[in-house]
Nucleic acid binder design. Structure first.
Length: 970
RNA sequence: GCCCGGGUGGCGGAAUUGGUAUACGCGAAGGACUUAAAAUCCUUUGGUCGUAAGACCUUGCGGGUUCGAGUCCCGCCUCGGGCACCA
């Protein structure tokens, strides 16, 4: 081989050698500590492996290779998630059998993955569409069925009219089919489900056990959507019927002014009065016809109809009207809600539209933190009114208080006054307006009065104050006035302020709160506060109120505490051909009978004439009579097979459990090897899988744990995400945009080493970004330089006799640089900061040039070999070639990660900055352990610093060891 | 609307978590080698003003805390991603 760095030759040479030697074949029985390094296996589509795969796998592979160098027995398996819609849709389009499509795609993808130099253990490959795999998918189904976790029910499902199949909630995006963007419709069908909801609580709680990105944990928690509340029975008037509502805000119950049932609620027919029947029926039909997208649309007004019946609020004993409206979802909670317009935005909107009453039952409550009530002082209560008076010019009246300077500001307030006994806030407002301004022609606005409470210590009176403030909104009808008393005139002048300026005009907190409510048109107060208008619960703060009200309900036996989840059960049946058949037989006599384990796999019939979906609600398998017609395994009578296949997410929910047991066709998981190798230590893949694949895999793991098949209940101990690699135009790569970059071209031109190293150097791993091949030459140049040093072509970079011989030892400078780099690269790989790891390798490379600093920099062969080892995870081929050229027999990839001497990293002299009043004025070279005074003296001696100290007094000296000296002067 | 992330030179991006902002790479400019080009190597490279020494400015915008803020706090703007009538 010539001296030229020929990546093509080198890479194909080592690919063959490694494969023959079985370098990446993991001995699962080794006693070395294990590291299970997992990547999300690819979907073998028509596009094969794309840049995103290369990116993700490069990061994971560097991590895996690093773990191997650190002495771990690393298992990095790979396979293909080959069932599912894309392959089938592609097959339909081209008129080829899906099996052929995926076989070809797998061949191509395998070639690409091998070319990229990932250390995958191909011996343990799984392909989910092969019977030796889906046998276990079917067994998994049976295990869940045994546990009662797989069940069938009539349910409204998402039906895609174009794909002619049922979709899981996760496959519906904005009401459109995830795959083909067709509008999804609702259909009632008998469906197979997995009971994920049984595990909702554990799926949330056990997130504490795993090392995942916090944002992904949050996403899963939100997706599961736990909410704590109470269920409360509501009696229907003049009837024996009752129903229950779910609420998280029982503290607002005194503000309930109506209740709403979902249109599908079974009680609707029973309680609708004859008079309302027609309208209710019409509404129900209309609601049913609506597609998801219409129902979810935000712009849509809230709609609903009155049923004619009433229910009793158990707290007040008062009756409230029962409405139906499609903003209440039948699938969540009890499908019925108590409506509290004052404290819920949706209810508010609805109430305004249908002119239903609004009653405030929660008042915002604040305690002045600067001036809180004091113990031992008398508590006093006051009721006051604040008035927003608006004229027809859109201005609001404020009062400028004369002679009452509050600090620098002249206080500007709204009209404020006390509410007297037996006076309503509205009456007080009218009275205050007249007294303070003289205006008499005033109308109370429709906006309901808003009440809020504040507590503080009133120093001038030496008492604690609890103020109940009611805001009243009024409109000035005309300028009609009565004379204002001289006394009032002295106190303040009237200033009309433009509505938009109101917020910045008023100064006291209560006014600001009201002004906000007025300007921003806050319709309902949805935060917490203190209970008002709430019978015996009035005055309680919400936490206590919630507790006491729930207790009250439970004691009375008309309600109980309850936790609801947003998560739905997982609909797993697909009316498609290309999936694992559900191993169930329907017998007229015995009903649903699971296929006996010994009869697995239930093979997908190969010779099917037409594998396209029929759109009848039954999958294409229904037309294959040899498949459908079977004997019942229980009674031997005539029976039919289930013709639905399973969602591909079932296939991928346990593949990582199967990897270590591949080849064993007697059991899904070999217990010993499973116990040793699982759970997965590091899982790398896209964040888009957080609410689907990753959640399902966790659920399945827990279910198998409960079935006593495995001993752990979390599958992935560590999880890291890569970002998206976008097209060069900054947009998501897609065929239709024509911005797809094929990795084959990059490998061909620059080699896998440069490709891997560059793609990791290009951006922060979790960020990703547009693919920009421009910078690739930088990495190529870097590898070329490494090559030239390695083969001794560049004596200038070894230093010594100019004949290309290696010096015995590196210069102390280089020793220190190498030690620092070993440390840095190791730390960076562990925290997935591959870009800075590569940068520091480049820095090291730049730092061993003899030409620039012949007296300081030269590197020994041994140290150069260390450099090769820490570079090897990124660039496995070139480092292996040089390693061999330097006379080593064994592979560089099974070497040890080099140790370094901590002492070499410690620097004796450091450059520190000298700041004067926060600005850097000079730099000083000092000993690391110099004392503060020493450094200060040095600084004072500096001309540059002196300039800024002339005639000034140094008031403060701050010294941060090894960093800087900061002087504060007056 | 709600919940997560981001916003730093011409570009991709660094910054030990409050301590010299712009590491590393690309690009650009100048130079060396060459008949020439490519490759390679060397130098310069945040902005403004200045012949210069130097001064001032600079991490989306506006405030604040601090001797010191890209980093912390408050209020905005903006770009991604997720959820979306979940009571």
């Amino acid at each position: 081989m010539s001296n030229k760095y020929d990546h093509k030759k080198i890479e194909s040479k080592w690919r063959d050698i490694w494969e023959k030697a079985g370098l990446n074949r993991t001995d699962l029985k080794s006693v070395k500590p294990k590291h299970y390094n997992l990547v999300m296996f690819p979907y073998p589509s028509a596009e094969y492996i794309h840049l995103g795969h290369i990116y993700s796998y490069s990061g994971a592979d560097v991590y895996g290779r690093y773990q191997r160098l650190k002495g771990k027995n690393v298992f990095e398996p790979i396979g293909f998630d080959s069932f599912g819609l894309p392959a089938e849709n592609f097959a339909i389009k081209k008129g080829i059998h899906p099996e052929k499509v995926i076989d070809h795609a797998i061949d191509q993808s395998t070639r690409q993955l091998k070319e990229a130099g990932f250390m995958f253990d191909w011996f343990r490959e799984v392909i989910t569409s092969k019977p030796d795999y889906y046998k276990w998918t079917q067994l998994l189904f049976l295990k869940l069925y045994d546990q009662g976790l797989a069940y069938r029910k009539e349910a409204p499902v998402n039906w895609c009219p174009s794909c002619k199949t049922v979709l899981a909630n996760e496959q519906v995006k904005d009401g459109l089919c995830d795959r083909c963007d067709t509008e999804v419709v609702q259909k009632e069908m008998k469906q197979w489900f997995f009971k994920v909801t049984d595990y909702a609580e554990r799926l949330i709680k056990d997130l504490d056990k795993v090392d995942w990105p916090e944002s992904s944990k949050i996403k899963q928690r939100n997706w599961i959507g736990r909410s704590e509340g109470v269920e409360m029975d509501m009696q229907i008037t003049d009837s024996k019927e009752k129903f229950s509502v779910f609420t998280t805000r029982i503290d607002t119950v005194y503000g309930m002014t109506y209740v709403v049932l979902a249109p599908e609620h079974p009680l609707v027919n029973k309680i609708t009065t004859d008079k309302q029947k027609k309208e209710v029926e019409k509404y129900k039909i209309q609601a049913q016809k609506q597609t998801e997208i219409e129902r979810q649309s935000l712009e849509k007004d809230k709609t609903g109809v009155f049923t004619g019946s009433y229910a009793i609020n158990p707290f007040t004993g008062e009756k409230v009207p029962i409405w139906i409206a499609d903003y209440v979802l039948f699938g969540y909670g009890t499908g019925a809600v108590m409506a509290v317009p004052a404290h819920d935005e949706r209810d508010f909107e609805f109430a305004k539209k249908y002119k239903l009453p609004i009653i405030q039952s929660i008042a915002p409550h604040s305690v002045d933190t600067k001036n809180p009530p004091r113990k031992g002082k008398t508590d006093t209560r006051r009721k006051v009114v604040h008035v927003i008076l608006e004229n027809d010019k859109g201005e609001v009246l404020t009062l400028n208080l004369k002679g009452q300077e509050w600090g620098d500001n002249k206080p500007k307030t709204l009209i404020i006054g006390g509410i007297e006994d037996r006076e309503s806030p509205e009456e007080a407002a009218m009275r205050e307006i007249e007294e303070e301004t003289g205006y008499t022609d005033v109308q109370i606005s429709e906006v309901y009065p808003i009440e809020f409470h504040a507590e503080f210590f009133a120093a001038h009176k030496d008492v604690n104050r609890y103020v109940e403030t009611v805001g009243v909104f009024c409109q000035l009808k005309s300028e009609k006035k009565v004379p204002v008393s001289e006394n009032e005139k002295k106190l303040h002048e009237i200033i009309w302020v433009k509505k938009k300026n109101l917020l910045s005009s008023v100064t006291i907190p209560d006014d600001i709160f009201l002004a906000k409510a007025y300007v921003e048109k806050i319709g309902s107060y949805t935060e917490y506060g203190v209970l008002i208008n709430s019978g015996k619960f009035t005055g309680l703060i919400y936490e206590e109120a919630k507790k006491k009200m729930a207790d009250w309900l439970e004691k009375k036996g008309i309600g109980s505490r309850k936790i609801n989840y947003r998560l739905h059960d997982w609909s797993i049946g697909r009316q498609r051909y290309w999936g694992a058949p559900i191993p169930i037989i329907h017998c007229d006599k015995c009903g649903v009978v699971p296929v006996p384990e010994k009869d697995l796999p239930v093979k997908l019939p190969e010779n099917i004439k037409d594998f396209r979906p029929k759109g009848t609600g039954k999958g294409p398998l229904a037309s294959v009579s040899e498949f459908v017609n079977v004997k019942c395994p229980r009674c031997g009578g005539k029976a039919e097979r289930e013709t639905d296949t399973m969602d591909t997410f079932v296939d991928s929910s346990f593949y990582f459990l199967r990897y270590p047991s591949t080849g064993d066709d007697t059991q899904m998981m070999e217990p010993k090897v499973t116990k040793k190798w699982l759970p997965v230590d590091m899982y790398v893949g896209g964040a888009e899988h957080v609410t689907m694949h990753l959640l399902y895999a966790r659920f399945i793991t827990k279910a198998l744990h409960d079935a006593k098949l495995i001993t752990f209940d979390e599958p992935f101990m560590k999880l890291r995400h890569q970002g998206y690699i976008l097209g060069p135009d900054g947009k998501k790569m897609s065929k239709s945009k024509g911005n797809v970059v094929n990795p084959d071209g990059v490998v061909k031109e620059h080699g896998a080493d440069a490709f891997r190293t560059y793609i990791l150097f290009m951006a922060r791993f979790e960020d990703g970004g547009p693919w920009n091949p421009k910078g690739l030459v930088g990495v190529s140049r870097f590898l070329e330089k490494i090559w030239r040093i390695g083969i001794g072509l560049d004596s200038r970079l070894h230093g010594n006799d100019n004949k290309g011989n290696w010096p015995d030892v590196s210069s102390t400078e280089v020793q220190a640089k190498l030690a620092r780099t070993i440390k840095k690269v190791g730390e960076d790989i562990e925290s997935f900061k591959f870009n800075t790891a590569v940068a520091s390798l480049m820095t090291l490379m730049n730092g061993i040039s003899v030409e620039k600093r012949p007296d300081e920099d030269w590197i020994s062969k041994g140290d150069f070999e260390k450099l090769l080892i820490i570079l090897a995870p990124f660039a496995p081929f070139i480092t292996e070639e040089l390693w061999e050229k330097l006379g080593n027999k064994d592979s560089i990839h099974v070497e040890k990660w080099p140790a370094y001497d901590e002492k070499l990293i410690q620097e004796e002299a450091v450059t520190i900055a000298v700041q004067v009043n926060g600005k850097v004025r000079d730099q000083l070279v000092v000993n690391v352990d110099s004392a503060k005074d020493e450094v200060f003296e040095l600084a004072k001696a500096s001309e540059k610093v002196q300039k800024y100290l002339l005639d000034k007094e140094v008031k403060k000296v701050i010294y941060i060891e090894g960093k800087l000296l900061s002087l504060v002067v007056n």
